[in-house]
Design a binder for these strands. Sequence first.
DNA 1: GTGAAAGCGCTAACAC
DNA 2: GTGTTAGCGCTTTCAC
Lengths: 337, 337
Amino acid sequence: MKHFITIKDIARELNISVSTVSRALRDTYDVNVETREKVLEMAAKLNYKPNFNATGLAKGSSHNIAVILPFITNYYFSTVITGIQEIAYQSGYTIVLYVTNDSPERELDIIKNLPITSLDGLLVSIASNSDASGHFEEVINNGIPVVFFDRVANHIETSKVMQDDYNGAFEGVEHLISNGYKKIAHIAGPASLTFTQNRLKGYQDALSKHNLPISEDWIIHSGFSQEDGKSDVEQLLKCKNRPDAIFAANDRKAIGAMLTLKSKGIKIGKEIGVLGFTNDPSSEIISPSLTTIAEPALEIGKKSCELLLKHISKKHFHPEEVIFPGKLIIRESTSKV
Amino acid sequence: MKHFITIKDIARELNISVSTVSRALRDTYDVNVETREKVLEMAAKLNYKPNFNATGLAKGSSHNIAVILPFITNYYFSTVITGIQEIAYQSGYTIVLYVTNDSPERELDIIKNLPITSLDGLLVSIASNSDASGHFEEVINNGIPVVFFDRVANHIETSKVMQDDYNGAFEGVEHLISNGYKKIAHIAGPASLTFTQNRLKGYQDALSKHNLPISEDWIIHSGFSQEDGKSDVEQLLKCKNRPDAIFAANDRKAIGAMLTLKSKGIKIGKEIGVLGFTNDPSSEIISPSLTTIAEPALEIGKKSCELLLKHISKKHFHPEEVIFPGKLIIRESTSKV
DNA sequence: GTGAAAGCGCTAACAC
DNA sequence: GTGTTAGCGCTTTCAC
């Protein structure tokens, strides 16, 4: 039990040496065609499975890539992983999954205990208050390529893949403005994240461009959950000067906001416009449907993985920054009529 | 570059043997307290990371478990993985992720190429028309424990974790009946899946118990997507004898159905009641909100992983079947008033 | 074209 | 309590 067929078994069976078997199996070096045939046949017959611990040890490379991210239970991240998985699978790489629950401590613990000796590369989206940049750099210095996606660590010099948060926000807010909203609030994500800052900047610049007021009272930083959206809105409704539109950092917050507005009998669109970010499937399910900026999650996943594989195959890689454009999807929640 | 610190380095530095270092590091056998201290210190100083390929090779066990499932982009599966991940992380196990996209070919390919030599166990939810049971059995015969969750392979003798599909469906349909619906249709999942059969049976038995008609026209098998729900409903609406309620195999189908009904101006609840299964967050977002049977996804994930770890630690394990009860969540979509 | 042998980093007898 | 050594399964130099 639990003894697996090894190349030794094949060698013995065929009365040849293990090195020949090894060579034949990998179809490298010059091996007599007949010999190779025989080896392949016997391997199939014995149902031989290579031991990746052994190959990893001998070659100094497993075919594993680690994915570290805050959550998987949402549309965006689960779709990104699907994209990563797709590329990894095609290329014979295996995905090792680490979930930080958006906790910096957990993230630190994970990265500290990473089996870097059996990892060919790292794909990561950092936690909200990530404190691990030093450790990420250490990994990179150990010769293990790292690609960040979505939530990137700013000052680390490596490849990054993200959506165009600034322009997405800018366009979205301009859309609100052109639909007649004048007092636009922003319920943002944690201030520490780069993309939060980018979306905030896009929002502010759009307001400035159109000479609309930017009020500190109308900018609230909190988490990304539906609940956060709800409490943010409660707070906004208490403002002396009540906003007539809300730009939410993501769709879940937007939906939380809408649910609260609906429960208070406030007409979404007519009284208060709502704009999201992501294009989560829920944005089409809720009524009125939610205007949002679509993020190309699947592409981001694929591209991140492709970049990483490229870095893995080349010794010296040049960090690349890839930015995908978002796409404004206009629905009912931003229409006054 | 890419030379990692090994126990040899520590040994040399401290002028002791590698075996002592190994023992000290693992805190096993009797090692002089002082020696251990020194080793630990030096390991920390040199930033030593164990090579898991090597430990795996030497001990014949990696700390990897593979998770194979159809999708990750939905509430149920992503939550299950979160549960699995939680337990695995606590126990120092690492998760290797495989996504089949619900394709039997892909599933087969994955299982055939599984690095079983570097896997301690397997957690799997099979594809809709899975054809891999022979291969799963082979894995088990190789001494690698397998636990199925949700979508279980029926005739394989190993542990299984699922929700109570039969009783969930039964209760849900009884709820429809008690709310006055008499012509209840069922838009089901792929007929090949065990849980589809269980939910169907629960539905049929509830109807029988209350002497309600079971019409073949009212039972439609298709996939699990929102789109499937939409087309299923189109088909139902064409029936000469139109049903007055729909029990959907899952919430996404239910939501697809509701969206179609809404677009046709059919009043949900009043004219046609809708019942889902899962308790996907979307079921609370849609309006009217969706009555559904909640599945304990997180618990299922945790329990599956716990069971697997138990099987891994014991040589001889007795297969267990764990069934979690569902919970009927009554909302607006099944109310006639 | 093929074999022998060393070595990847670690564990586990077996000595002492 | 510690060192020596063989071995996990595979790759790879070096011979021939």
